[in-house]
Write a protein that binds this DNA or RNA. Structure first.
Lengths: 256, 256
DNA sequence: TGGTCAGGGATTGTATAAAGTTTCGCCTGT
DNA sequence: ACAGGCGAAACTTTATACAATCCCTGACCA
């Protein structure tokens, strides 16, 4: 039990009881949005925590615990957790509760195969939809990634690294691919955490820069190729050996 | 409001109050599965109804109504509807309720593009995983399809037609692709219902037979090609013109 | 005659409470 | 001293009750 959940929203972090009572009265017109946003906020909070490797695979996600943190009742927490389960980053065991998912090596291979198939197509579409606005956003993102890496912020680094792919998907305008990829990226984050060989700093930022360059030049074939090799390289850095289901945790505990 | 929901489970249809009390006691070991199955049954029931074109796009899916049909409380109905919303065949509008989704032509193009990308890969994997058992199941499925078509059962026909693709995906053993494709097939069913030109009988059964033949011969390139042309042909039969949102229904009503 | 506005009815969103299940601790018997 | 079983606590699951929202209808006014 050495794992510490540590769910910290970056922004608003008011006392729970306040949040439940102050918001419904503060704004009548936005009340409708707020209701739905409560679920979204929980979902995104947990997702970010997982993407930043603050929540580790196997961590118990108790409904009461999360509900208290976000000042929401279990009903809302439950729907958020179910949505995350559908995305594959949370696994719900009947009468046991929700846990951060622990993808198997087989899952890992499937995820990366799917990404190798989908992402080149996404880059293709992104190039079709290229615009100064988007190039600006991409450039800005590269800067953020670089900054995080320079400052040695591993958590932001790993999150931004995945977000780059999400950004390209969004840029493509293909909502279905974007939706699929969002799930794949979230799972990839867990996979990298579980099966990475060395502690190499996230996936290479330089690759992302090259991809952006190819997009700017509207060089489809090169962009596709770069994306493919980028993904292949990430997967090559993984050590996908069957860890005998959930035994490694036992050995970890014994080792400590 | 001429649309009649008509949700009919084929099998067990006991009085609601009985279902809630009899089942939990009937089997202690299966109790765990039963609880989850209540949601699954609702989900699958509605899904099947949509796949068989018994539920038309835009139909209101009231929580009370469905809950009464399946003898479940709104809580369970709600989770089922949310899951279906995530699959894209139900759209939930805040404070309005759930409706059978009405894919736009843009959605349609995206769905088929995604299928054209994914399904050839799926056939590839299916051929890798080919076995006498699976060939048997495929053959049996072709027989069912043929039987439904011969008997003129359009509903079963359209459902089985989609199920063929799902079967191949399952056969491939690639759970992620299978999951994605399941969503895509469900949406395709709605798309075909909305935008089909002629009333040609579902998608060509003969194509399916040819694909099975290619799978049996383990001829990957041919199987891929057949799958691709099959999907292209289905899409070619669609008339993907912006129908100005929901105006066509008006004209329908005026015509009747 | 057409438009605006308020009230009624219905439906959804949320919270709370009851029920069932699992797990852990403790106690007893061998 | 150890194994097995009983019991309580914590959790999830399900159901129900309450509150908020929206649509529809009808009346009133320009």
């Amino acid at each position: 039990m050495t794992i510490e959940p540590q769910i910290n929203e970056p922004t608003s972090n008011e006392p729970k009881s306040m949040a439940a009572k102050a918001q419904p009265k503060s704004d009548t017109s936005l009340a409708a949005d707020n209701g739905s946003d409560r679920v979204s906020r929980i979902r995104e909070g947990v997702t970010t925590a997982i993407l930043e490797h603050r929540l580790l695979p196997g961590t118990k996600l108790g409904e009461d615990e999360i509900g208290e943190i976000y000042g929401a009742s279990r009903t809302l927490v439950r729907t958020a957790l179910h949505q995350l389960a559908h995305e594959g980053i949370v696994s719900i065991e009947k009468n046991r509760g929700a846990f951060v998912a622990r993808p198997t090596p087989a899952d890992a291979r499937e995820v990366f195969e799917a990404r190798r198939l989908i992402e080149p197509s996404i880059v293709d579409h992104a190039i079709d939809a290229v615009s100064p606005d988007w190039l600006e956003r991409l450039q800005q993102h590269l800067a953020e990634e670089h900054a995080a890496e320079t400052r040695g912020d591993a958590r932001a680094s790993i999150r931004l690294s995945g977000e780059f792919h999400r950004l390209v998907a969004e840029m493509s305008g293909h909502s279905i691919f974007a939706g699929f990829l969002k799930e794949l990226i979230a799972r990839s984050s867990l996979i990298i955490l579980l099966y990475r060989r060395h502690d190499t700093p996230a996936c290479g930022t330089s690759h992302h820069a090259e991809i952006v360059t190819a997009i700017r030049r509207q060089d489809k074939s090169r962009a596709r190729e770069l994306m493919l090799s980028h993904l292949t390289e990430i997967e090559a850095e993984l050590f996908l050996k069957e860890p005998a289901a959930d035994e490694p945790r036992l050995s970890d505990v014994l080792g400590a």
